[in-house]
């Protein structure tokens, strides 16, 4: 099981996938707002979305997982 983690602390602005979606490596899956910047969050491996751990508006710490891939 792979996890897609945020590289920096910030607020989840948008989640672009839903449970069951297949994602490819490098696909933009979410946008995190940090330091007033929209920071794209990309999948570093391909997989199927099995769990979304946060909602838009939630705080996400550096290294914290947002999405789990099966």
């Amino acid at each position: 099981m792979a996890k897609i983690k945020s590289e920096m602390a910030g607020t989840v602005l948008e989640i672009k996938v839903k449970v069951g979606d297949t994602v490819t490596k490098g696909q933009e899956v979410a946008v995190v707002e940090s330091m007033k910047m929209e920071v794209p969050l990309q999948a570093d491996v391909a997989g199927k979305v099995s769990k979304i751990l946060k909602n838009a508006g939630d705080f996400l710490n550096e290294g914290e997982a947002l999405i789990e891939l099966a």
Partner: peptide
């Protein structure tokens, strides 16, 4: 690089 960590 604004693509990565907003360039911060």
């Amino acid at each position: 690089q604004p693509m990565v960590k907003g360039g911060v």
